[in-house]
Simulated assay, not measured.
Amino acid sequence: MNPLTLKTTILKFESELWSYYVPIPKKIGNSFIDGDNRRVKCTINSGEPIYSALMHKGDVYSIYMKKEFLKKNKLSEGDEVRVTLEKDNTEYGMPVPESFQVLMDQDDEGVKFFKQLTMGKQRSLIHIVGKVKNVDSQLAKGLAIMHHLKEAKGELAFKRLNVLIKEYNNRR
């Protein structure tokens, strides 16, 4: 499916995790849904893409955004924006940082446990690695994740993982 561009407005709703969204008409949203897969790549005003699921919000779909995203992109509630939607064809519903992919390519046991996690947990771990731009920090986080998955036989415990990430960061 080809990318589709539309104009819409940034709206606000109250949530502890998400505060803002852009509405996507149901007819347009439906054209991007394939069975249970609602993942899209959403670009707002030619900025950094958001990899997201189309979320139901009343009679429309929505792409949720955090306040930090708006601030970084100098956007506000009520702004009219140009939204380009594309079907997300990435394996995990978001791009994998190159540093983490290299680790995954070298660690069959860690990848086996990683692939047993739910897609949401996989994306959470990819996000943990990708949210830092420094490659050394990404590698430390990725190594800690793989260590944790193997140590815990695939049982993800974020508190333990956070301790390991700190330990791996201190080793650098």
Rank of each mutant, 00 (worst) to 15 (best):
residue 100 F to G: 05
residue 68 E to Y: 05
residue 32 F to T: 03
residue 59 D to N: 13
residue 42 C to L: 14
residue 112 K to F: 13
residue 100 F to Q: 00
residue 25 P to L: 02
residue 75 L to I: 04
residue 40 V to Y: 03
residue 15 S to R: 12
residue 47 G to S: 15
residue 46 S to H: 11
residue 69 F to P: 14
residue 83 V to T: 06
residue 75 L to C: 04
residue 75 L to N: 08
residue 131 K to S: 08
residue 56 H to N: 15
residue 106 Q to S: 13
residue 38 R to Q: 06
residue 83 V to N: 04
residue 128 I to M: 12
residue 40 V to R: 12
residue 100 F to Y: 02
residue 56 H to S: 13
residue 37 N to W: 12
residue 99 S to Q: 11
residue 138 Q to T: 03
residue 74 K to L: 14
residue 113 F to D: 00
residue 136 D to A: 06
residue 51 Y to G: 12
residue 135 V to C: 01
residue 31 S to W: 07
residue 134 N to Q: 13
residue 67 K to L: 02
residue 91 E to P: 01
residue 38 R to C: 02
residue 71 K to S: 13
residue 26 K to N: 00
residue 45 N to D: 02
residue 53 A to E: 10
residue 63 I to A: 04
residue 115 K to T: 04
residue 96 V to I: 15
residue 116 Q to G: 00
residue 20 Y to I: 00
residue 51 Y to V: 09
residue 104 M to K: 11
residue 135 V to D: 07
residue 94 M to H: 09
residue 68 E to H: 12
residue 70 L to G: 07
residue 128 I to K: 14
residue 108 D to R: 12
residue 56 H to A: 12
residue 44 I to C: 07
residue 115 K to I: 10
residue 17 L to I: 03
residue 86 E to T: 14
residue 63 I to G: 05
residue 123 R to F: 02
residue 17 L to E: 14
residue 50 I to N: 02
residue 47 G to Y: 07
residue 77 E to A: 15
residue 58 G to I: 14
residue 34 D to H: 13
residue 33 I to A: 05
residue 142 G to H: 04
residue 58 G to A: 14
residue 58 G to M: 05
residue 83 V to S: 01
residue 32 F to Q: 08
residue 86 E to C: 00
residue 104 M to N: 04
residue 136 D to I: 01
residue 82 R to H: 11
residue 44 I to N: 00
residue 64 Y to A: 11
residue 100 F to M: 05
residue 140 A to D: 06
residue 80 E to T: 15
residue 120 G to A: 08
residue 93 G to D: 05
residue 110 G to A: 12
residue 24 I to W: 10
residue 56 H to I: 08
residue 24 I to T: 01
residue 86 E to Y: 08
residue 125 L to A: 10
residue 129 V to T: 05
residue 116 Q to V: 06
residue 14 E to P: 01
residue 117 L to R: 09
residue 59 D to T: 13
residue 16 E to L: 05
residue 131 K to G: 00
residue 93 G to A: 09
residue 113 F to G: 00
residue 138 Q to L: 06
residue 32 F to W: 06
residue 58 G to N: 10
residue 129 V to K: 01
residue 102 V to G: 06
residue 130 G to S: 02
residue 20 Y to P: 08
residue 72 K to R: 15
residue 43 T to R: 08
residue 117 L to G: 07
residue 75 L to V: 04
residue 136 D to S: 02
residue 59 D to M: 12
residue 66 K to V: 01
residue 23 P to G: 11
residue 19 S to W: 13
residue 125 L to M: 14
residue 89 N to H: 03
residue 37 N to D: 15
residue 115 K to R: 08
residue 30 N to I: 03
residue 69 F to G: 08
residue 75 L to A: 09
residue 32 F to P: 09
residue 59 D to W: 09
residue 125 L to K: 14
residue 34 D to V: 06
residue 139 L to G: 07
residue 15 S to C: 12
residue 140 A to G: 10
residue 102 V to N: 13
residue 55 M to I: 15
residue 85 L to D: 06
residue 131 K to C: 04
residue 34 D to G: 01
residue 100 F to K: 12
residue 67 K to G: 09
residue 119 M to R: 09
residue 60 V to E: 10
residue 15 S to L: 09
residue 119 M to N: 11
residue 77 E to K: 15
residue 102 V to F: 01
residue 48 E to H: 15
residue 39 R to F: 13
residue 122 Q to N: 07
residue 122 Q to V: 07
residue 96 V to L: 13
residue 110 G to V: 08
residue 66 K to P: 03
residue 79 D to V: 02
residue 135 V to M: 02
residue 109 E to Y: 09
residue 85 L to P: 05
residue 90 T to P: 04
